[in-house]
Amino acid sequence: MKKGNTYIFLYASGMVIIVAAVLSVASILLRPYQERNIETAKRTDILKSVDKARELREAENRFQYIEEEFERYITDSYVINHRGEIQEDVDAFEVNMREEMRKPAEERNLPVFVCTHDDGTLSYIIPLHGRGLWGPLFGYVALEEDFNTIFGIILDHESETPGLGAEISESAFQEQFRGKRIFDEDMEFVSVKVIRAADPPIEGHSVDGISGGTITSQGVEEMLYDVLINYIDYFKERKK
């Protein structure tokens, strides 16, 4: 068969249509599974920031396990604005922190998840989003009932250097945050600093950074500051 321009044109069009159809069908069929994964990953991160979901590795059905743990411990969630007023019409679980952090401060929707521990004490979990060296950083920080002491933190990243910046997602780094405070004695917001070995540590307000991961460490520090500063009016209000 002679392959003239008409043939080439028809061949290309036909190919594109077939490929488009195949990919659309695959996308539609697989979407429910993908969404379930994303949702479960989000719930897992929230639970891990308050030291729950510890038996995830042993769980037979991890989707079911996470759902049960989430139902059991995360007893409330709501969204506030920068003045600390509760926004009624927004679902905390649906808020995308990446987009919120791009908006001007007064338009941000700020989610809070409340965890009720087995002994009845509460933790307040706040989603984080910031920038590392190569890409975004994200995670959740949980505060104790005093809205000051850090109960736990979970950090992850998209593309930090393995062995260097990527160490922020290791528990050795995250454990350091436990018990640190975000307000000083005069109730001024100071957040938690991630410092280098050469810097003098600040009692109760600093953790050791990652050697060779300076920019990622700074990214973590900036992320904590930039996110938590939105909430301080609310925290101060609640502490009274």
Binding site: K3, Y7, I8, Y11, A12, M15, V16, V19, V22, L23, A26, S27, L30, Y33, Q34, N37
Partner: peptide, 26 residues
């Protein structure tokens, strides 16, 4: 058609890769 063979190859590879990526995500 020989003149667009590279494009055809790329489309085949790209579609398969997207499928693999979607399956992994799921």
């Amino acid at each position: 058609p020989p003149r667009i063979r590279i494009i055809v190859q790329l489309v085949v590879i790209a579609s398969l890769v997207i499928l693999v990526d979607q399956v992994l995500k799921a």
